[in-house]
Nucleic acid binder design. Structure first.
Lengths: 203, 203
DNA sequence: CCCGAAGTGCCACCGAGTGCCAAGTGTGCC
DNA sequence: GGCACACTTGGCACTCGGTGGCACTTCGGG
């Protein structure tokens, strides 16, 4: 069931069809990428399979990368939401860990697990995609750092600490994710993340 | 003065001319990027200024990105060298901080300061370049994590800790660098790095 | 029912990057 | 000096991701 109402306002029809189109194209593309490989799948292949013109495709997606990494935007927003929802007196490291649960849940979602893992594999196999993933994470990190700066009562932008902590937390997340994937999910993601974050408590 | 001998072996002539060509092209390209912007400078512009063909250019550089980010490869090697040179009983966080001195020195080099800052500005202004920079750092991080795994006596690849620590240290480096640039070098890079790393001591 | 805005297809175009082949350039050896 | 050989270079045609422009359709509201 898709949300038709958000904050009491209806989402206009155009927007809904647009999202549906993006979702459909994303699924189709990811299947092609998983089957043939990212580089081996051209936009022409994709639009032929989808029955649309190349020009139209680029009205829905800004780039080929977007087909794989589009979800990260959404995830980053959910992350910042999650952290603002944490009590302000909570230690920041704890808040970060709890906020990361939204990411953990995303990766643990069994209905999507196979697809998610397939896309991670595609990303790892392609340096440009890996780079794009990191870049999107860096954007999230900046948002996070701003929130932390506020929360830690360190208003000075000349203080590198909030950015360092946000980056460190994301590094733990990445390390846990990589281990989780490399070990074929033999241990729960959340547990690995706990372990990584326990090794690095801010002073 | 350029090194002609390395480890007692002479570098062959071809290799030397190749390096000289790369260095010259890099300087030329960076000047163009700084003047006109990265996206606005085409490879055609560059090779016209250098008096060579496009085809030849791509025999010296694998990509346009390489003109800006090529030095990172070298820097990563120097970093891993520096860390292997640290005593094994030293706490890893301390070893990392000391190893980072090679990076700090690179950025502090006054003869190159203007050029380095100009390139940082170019990188920041271009998402693809930022992504590439992060990707190269991630590669360095993997090397670092391997060294740490060894040094920490945690041989299991299922342990996310070494990667988390390596990532955290690099996050501190990045945070310090960003602050250093954002505040127009009003405080020494090394000092900002100390501050960032002090906030995040591994348990 | 009509008007305007958004969506679409098509085509020409740009820039990065590659494969291929022919011509140039130097280096060592006889 | 001349020959053979390895390496370098240039030019061309090509692929692919991505954009600009324009004409056409579709759809919703007054």
């Amino acid at each position: 069931m898709v949300d038709i109402m958000v904050h009491g306002n209806p989402i206009p029809v155009r927007e809904r069809t647009r999202r549906a189109m993006r979702a459909e194209l994303t699924l189709l593309a990811q299947d092609l990428f998983a089957a043939k490989g990212y580089d081996q799948t051209t936009i022409e292949d994709l639009v032929a399979a989808a029955g649309m013109s190349k020009r139209t495709f680029f009205r829905y997606f800004t780039s080929k990368e977007d087909l794989v990494l589009g979800k990260y935007e959404l995830l980053a927003d959910r992350l910042t939401e999650a952290i603002t929802a944490r009590p302000r007196e909570e230690p920041v490291w704890e808040s970060l860990r709890r906020a990361f649960d939204v990411i953990v849940e995303f990766f643990d979602d069994e209905r999507q697990l196979a697809r998610t893992l397939a896309m991670e594999k595609v990303i790892c196999a392609n340096p440009a995609l890996s780079a794009g993933e990191l870049e999107r994470m860096a954007r999230a990190q900046e948002q996070l750092a701003d929130l932390l700066r506020d929360r830690m009562g360190r208003p000075s932008p000349a203080d590198p600490t909030p950015a360092a902590i946000a980056g460190a937390a994301l590094s733990c997340l990445i390390a846990a994710k990589k281990t989780w994937i490399a070990t074929s999910q033999s241990r729960p993601f959340g547990e690995l993340l706990d372990e990584a974050m326990a090794a690095l408590r801010p002073a």
